[in-house]
Design a protein around this nucleic acid. Structure first.
Lengths: 346, 346
DNA sequence: CTGAAAGCGCTTACAG
DNA sequence: CTGAAAGCGCTTACAG
């Protein structure tokens, strides 16, 4: 590859001048500048980013650490990040941790060796204390989707509110026996959705029934098994709130295979709004998470942290999940009764 | 961050010695080596990869250029690549082109400025001649999933065979009026699947009927509309072969909404085997593409190209797609007849 | 406005 | 086996 010296020779100036003409930050006479640009074009000169980075101490690169690229919540967020990064002239390095904390640490080391300017994370586990260390060293870090304590900047979705609103909607629709199929309680986002579920029940005066709540499910097959387990306990929920779309989809599959109908016999509410959820039979009612926006906001926040010398105090940005009503939730038995009663109340 | 000089001081040796002790490629006395490693541990020294890369002219980094991270075929391939890269000590830089050729070119420039050691591509379009240029300059490039002419190393799936076997299976199952819903003919992979479809028809002596073939569909909504269009043409296919799973899923949705049953009235065959396809109602019969393996093989090939000075001639590796029989395809009208006739033929 | 020099943090041929 | 020196390709304070 051609270097700055060759460009300088071609243009009849010194390397310093080439550098200045290209940077735009220093005054260079118009004629010299034109000569330089001409030479650059002729030789198709591409400044070596390593040398530049070594000198300047920054690389216009951000590291992105994701627990699992095959988890469908991440591709949209990745897109949001790369779009914003591109707009600001940043390159993104993607690392996959397989939900493993040691792999995560290894990636962080590797990225720091490469002098990335900042890091966007979805933590593998809540035990990622090495992230707090980074933060303390003044290294720009933004968490996304999954967050830690409130000491590190983060862009997340309001999971308590999401869980609350989903459950409240089911209750308003007249469902009274609402099963909850949750992910691992090791992740704050699932704890929050659970708390929201309970809060909505309490508000409506519905007793919490632990026989229709299952934690720790992971993929659609777990969701499939979980609802079967609940059914085997001789529980007959009139609705199921699953804490992720894949779990909801597994639930629907199991319900159908039992010869029951969705939503007539059991309504199903998901959480995510993955691309496929609209396509399902029946189309899934769900809490839509704004993953693309989460990615965008995380990247914008990180770039702000990188550019600004004195570190502002951590900001936790919570975006709202949005209820998306489709076919998998209809009206429960309490709906008609309430409608009937409405006339009297007024 | 701590540098090599500080380590040298701590260990009481020269920077050269630190470098040598760490590289392992040169003889260093055991005692010196121990002193150095001790200092490295105490200071938590991480060699600066930029400086190292600048000096050595390589960075142990590979660039990965993907047309669209939200397209579900890619996450699995990305995983295959990052797994292999990690095993060999390489880092992966992910770039997203949005199917846009100019963005693709910009990414290539950017990555070369960063001295990546090689590139893995899924080309945005067949017109990516800049990739051929890279190849001619002796720069290591491997294409994946989508390939160009046979001048560049590539790991792809055998699309002709895949299209042929899918269609042949439908014919063997007794279907005779098989619609084909294809992607864009601008991509070789769709041309090949189409050719396979026609070859299987011809072999079985079934006339090609262009009224039940639609090209250029992209996502599930296009698939949904395409089958509706065919139905409006007063065509009644007994089976639909869709050239991707999302298209097949859209087809199923449309068929159901028309009050027809899958597979009893119309059978549906997909192509991909995305994670969700098994979950559908009915579970989708499809040609499974080994995306994870494609990613692995592409990364292995690229690393081989990087390590080997004299360039071997381009190798196009074709992995087989595999028929996965699930519920969305059953038995067509010609099946029973043939079964009946079998006794006589023997 | 422009050039010569120093330096970013490494590695490696050259001496010893 | 080890150290001093040069150099990878840039940028920028220092002169002029």
């Amino acid at each position: 590859m051609v270097n700055i010296k060759e460009v300088a020779e071609r243009a009849g100036v010194s390397p310093s001048t080439v550098s200045r003409a290209l940077s735009g930050r220093v005054v260079v006479s118009p004629e010299t500048k034109e000569k330089v640009l001409q030479a650059v074009r002729e030789l198709n000169y591409q400044p070596n980013v390593l040398a530049k980075g070594l000198k300047e101490g920054r690389t216009k690169t951000i590291g992105l650490i994701i627990p699992n690229v095959r988890n469908l919540v991440f591709p949209a967020a990745i897109k949001g990040i790369t779009d914003v990064a591109k707009k600001h002239g940043y390159t993104v390095i993607l690392c996959n941790t397989d939900e493993d904390i040691e792999t995560e640490k290894a990636h962080v080391e590797n990225l720091r060796k490469r002098l990335v300017d900042g890091l966007i994370f979805s933590t593998a586990t809540a035990a990622s204390t090495h992230i707090l260390e980074l933060k303390e060293q003044g290294f720009p870090v933004v968490l996304m989707i999954r967050h830690l304590e409130n000491k590190v900047d983060a862009v997340i979705v309001d999971n308590f509110k999401g869980g609350y609103e989903a459950t409240k909607f089911l209750i308003e629709r007249g469902y009274r026996h609402i099963a909850f199929i949750n992910g691992t309680l090791g992740l704050d986002l699932y704890r929050q959705r659970f708390a929201g579920y309970k809060a909505a029940l309490a508000e409506a005066g519905i007793a919490y029934n632990e026989d229709i709540v299952i934690h720790g499910t992971h993929d659609w097959e777990d969701g499939y098994r979980a609802i079967l387990t609940i059914l085997e306990r001789d529980q007959q929920p009139d609705a199921v709130f699953a804490a992720s779309d894949p779990k909801a989809l597994g639930v629907i599959k199991a319900i159908k295979e039992k010869g029951l109908r969705v939503p007539e016999d059991i309504a199903v509410m998901g959480y995510d709004n993955l691309d496929m959820s609209e396509l399902m039979d029946p189309p899934l009612t769900t809490m839509a998470q704004p993953f693309y926006e989460v990615g965008q906001r995380a990247a914008e926040r990180l770039i702000k942290l990188i550019d600004c010398k004195r570190k502002p105090r951590p900001l936790i940005e919570k975006l709202p999940a949005q209820l998306l009503v489709r076919v998998s939730v209809s009206y429960g038995s309490a709906w008609a009764e309430r409608e009937k009663g409405k006339g009297n109340n007024k």
